[in-house]
Lab assay of single mutants.
Amino acid sequence: MAAAAAAGAGPEMVRGQVFDVGPRYTNLSYIGEGAYGMVCSAYDNVNKVRVAIKKISPFEHQTYCQRTLREIKILLRFRHENIIGINDIIRAPTIEQMKDVYIVQDLMETDLYKLLKTQHLSNDHICYFLYQILRGLKYIHSANVLHRDLKPSNLLLNTTCDLKICDFGLARVADPDHDHTGFLTEYVATRWYRAPEIMLNSKGYTKSIDIWSVGCILAEMLSNRPIFPGKHYLDQLNHILGILGSPSQEDLNCIINLKARNYLLSLPHKNKVPWNRLFPNADSKALDLLDKMLTFNPHKRIEVEQALAHPYLEQYYDPSDEPIAEAPFKFDMELDDLPKEKLKELIFEETARFQPGYRS
């Protein structure tokens, strides 16, 4: 834990890192770190609560700039109880001085990944967590956004079992017609939660990839272990087919990539493993919904509104309290091709509203 900075004593240090967030945020305490930044909790002297502050230093890398800009653009436009918001952003007053960006968010005690390492969940908890994931996802999908990296560590939890989806750095506007060349190379989302079509096709992607990830998360809540822990690309596919069985001819016809289709045709026939054999203690309604989410063919996979209306979630289902976005989200430009200098300018502009004396 960093010592509390005395008023006016300059930035606090946390594990050798400068955290320049005073005077409003003090009493910093280390939480963890990701690929390009550290997260601390801090005391907000204005709202009198502890908050989470993520320090991001992305400006050396085009990919990190892209992810940072995506996350900020999306989260500043989203407003939903099951999606983490941005409360404040701290950065230098000029673009030349801006080396880091500090993002202030609600402090959540833990995440689903940490929880599943230590606790076996009751059916009631599984049901409530799944409902909140789908409630947040309904809003995301209504904005025409794909999260693309749903996994237990991106689901934040607090002691009252509130759940918030975080990390929109890989999110995209849904565009089933656009052929994202190089899709697989830039697709760094965790393999275990990846839909089979991501490994088999490169053309376009749809909201059904997020539903697949939610199915993987439900299976993990039922058993405290990942359902498809593939060691590499082909191993991942083999794990999936080992449980779902061989795809039907109709399902194979959806695979545009001939090499991928021929690979699947070359494999020995596998039978589907019954879900109640894998999860003998699970609620039968939970397994019915799991089956509809972990469907090989993305066109037959359940959609988020149908999933919310499934009998497993009937005690929570309330369409009048499951809000959607006001308007579909649009990125003005494809960020993939922009140089990091341009992305830095866009991050600077996007964060201006939090600067003292800002006038829109």
Rank of each mutant, 00 (worst) to 15 (best):
G8H: 09
P11S: 13
M13A: 02
M13H: 09
V14F: 13
V14Y: 09
R15F: 09
G16P: 06
V18M: 02
V21N: 04
R24H: 12
L28A: 03
S29D: 04
E33V: 13
M38Y: 11
S41C: 13
S41N: 14
Y43C: 13
D44L: 13
N45Y: 13
N47H: 10
A52K: 02
A52Q: 05
A52N: 00
H61Y: 14
Y64L: 15
R70S: 14
R70M: 09
R70H: 12
I74G: 09
L75M: 14
L76P: 09
R79C: 09
N82I: 15
I84C: 14
I86A: 00
R91D: 00
P93C: 01
I95S: 01
Q97D: 12
V101K: 10
I103R: 12
K117D: 07
K117G: 08
T118M: 11
T118R: 09
T118F: 09
H120P: 13
H120Y: 13
N123I: 14
D124W: 02
H125I: 05
I126H: 08
C127E: 07
F129L: 13
L137N: 09
K138L: 08
H141N: 15
N144C: 08
L150K: 06
P152L: 08
S153Q: 07
L157M: 13
N158D: 00
T160R: 08
D167E: 11
L170P: 00
L170K: 11
V173G: 11
V173H: 05
A174I: 07
T181E: 06
A189I: 10
A189R: 12
A189T: 13
T190E: 04
Y193C: 00
S202N: 12
K207F: 06
S208V: 10
D210K: 10
I211S: 00
I211D: 11
S213V: 11
I217S: 13
I217Q: 06
E220Y: 02
S223Q: 11
N224A: 05
I227P: 05
G230A: 03
K231A: 07
H232V: 02
Y233T: 12
Y233W: 04
L234C: 06
I240Q: 07
L241K: 07
S248N: 08
D251G: 10
I256S: 09
N257Q: 04
N257I: 15
A260I: 03
K272R: 02
V273K: 02
N281E: 09
D291I: 03
N297K: 12
N297R: 07
I302V: 00
V304E: 08
L308P: 00
A309H: 02
E314V: 13
Q315E: 11
Y316S: 00
Y317E: 00
D321I: 07
D321V: 14
I324R: 01
E326D: 15
A327F: 00
D337V: 14
E345H: 01
E345K: 14
E349F: 00
Q355W: 00
Y358C: 11
Y358P: 04
Y358T: 02
